[in-house]
């Protein structure tokens, strides 16, 4: 018999979660199911415009986000967002359209409708740490991640700029560490957790990504991390999918698994490893997880 959910959200996965980051989507669904948090995907959501739209066309970026918030308004519950970049775009649009009546008028014209933008937009981290709560998260633990040394990587957009995401302190956040420690993991102190991986240059300037992401991997390795934990598909693409290229370019062997926060949490909450997409990662985390007795 299905049990009642303790919380319910509308859900905006974003383009990457339907493609190169499908294991982030799968593990999110599995984790939320076991925690009894309901997620209902916004039907026919659109791309948020990501970096290319705000890079050259702010009005388009704001309009695409406003349209998505209008679509989300038709589904019950605050809007849960998995991708740090989508999260940042949607929150920025809310912030800017609140502050600037002229831009608001232009976006209203573009959408040909009054704006419906008030639904709270929440990153998964925020839902887990604040709405669900760390204590409950700890109580949901079935298999402690103890012994696993995790480097929590925030990247740029989860915390910056200070006024927009408001997840945690912009310069010294601890929300990721607190969430994964609730599942028993150990976290390492390291220098590059808030540095940029070069995200949007994946296509046009891969050299930039190779250099910036290399510094991040090197820093995590120096700190003695077993793996890196991320909460963004773009960070993941650069650190995992590109890791072999980075190793070749820098002549350093890392072999550092890069895991989504939801994969690790779901594992701790007792979801079977088979459902968490570990096979589809470029740097397989399975040897590490076996060594730690987690699979």
């Amino acid at each position: 018999m299905p049990t009642k959910n303790v919380l319910n959200y509308s859900y905006y996965p974003g383009c990457s979660l339907h493609a190169s980051a499908k294991e982030y989507d799968e593990s999110t669904q599995e984790l939320f199911k076991i925690l009894r948090i309901g997620l209902q995907e916004v039907p026919d959501w659109l791309c948020c415009g990501a970096t290319p739209a705000h890079n050259v066309d702010e009005l388009l970026s704001l309009s695409l986000c406003a349209k998505n918030l209008e679509l989300a308004d038709g589904v019950q519950g605050d809007l849960a967002v998995a991708c740090a970049a989508c999260f940042s775009r949607l929150k920025t649009a809310q912030h800017k359209l609140e502050e600037n009546p002229e831009k608001r008028k232009q976006v209203e014209y573009a959408l040909d409708a009054p704006l419906a933008m008030d639904k709270p937009v929440k990153h998964l981290l925020e839902i887990l740490a604040k709405d669900y709560g760390l204590e409950q998260l700890g109580a949901a633990m079935r298999k402690s991640l103890s012994g696993l040394k995790v480097a929590c990587y925030y990247g740029c957009l989860l915390t910056r700029p200070a006024e927009v995401p408001q997840l945690d302190c912009a310069e010294a956040p601890t929300i990721m560490e607190r969430v994964i420690e609730a599942m028993g993991a150990e976290t390492v102190k390291w220098s590059h957790r808030l540095e940029c991986c070069g995200a949007n240059f994946t296509l046009s300037r891969p050299g930039v990504v190779l250099q910036l992401s290399n510094e991040i991997l090197a820093s995590a390795q120096r700190a003695g991390a077993d793996c890196i934990m991320v909460a963004c598909p773009l960070c993941h693409a650069n650190l995992d999918i590109r890791q072999k290229d980075i190793e070749a370019a820098s002549g350093t062997r890392y072999n550092l698994p890069v895991l989504y926060m939801t994969q690790l949490l779901a594992l701790g909450a007792g979801v079977s490893a088979k459902k968490l997409g570990f096979d589809s990662m470029m740097v397989s985390p399975l040897p590490l997880l076996k060594e730690k007795g987690l699979v």
């Binding site: 383009c15 990457s16 339907h18 493609a19 190169s20 026919d44 659109l46 791309c47 415009g49 990501a50 290319p52 739209a53 890079n55 050259v56 066309d57 388009l60 695409l64 240059f201 296509l203 046009s204 300037r205």
Partner: peptide, 25 residues
């Protein structure tokens, strides 16, 4: 090249509503 990547990304949204990495690449 950066401009080209931006343009194709935006064209993709207009045509398909979402990004399809395969098409973009």
């Amino acid at each position: 090249l950066v401009q080209l990547a931006n343009r194709l990304f935006l064209d993709n949204i207009r045509t398909y509503g979402r990004q399809y990495e395969m098409r973009l690449a």
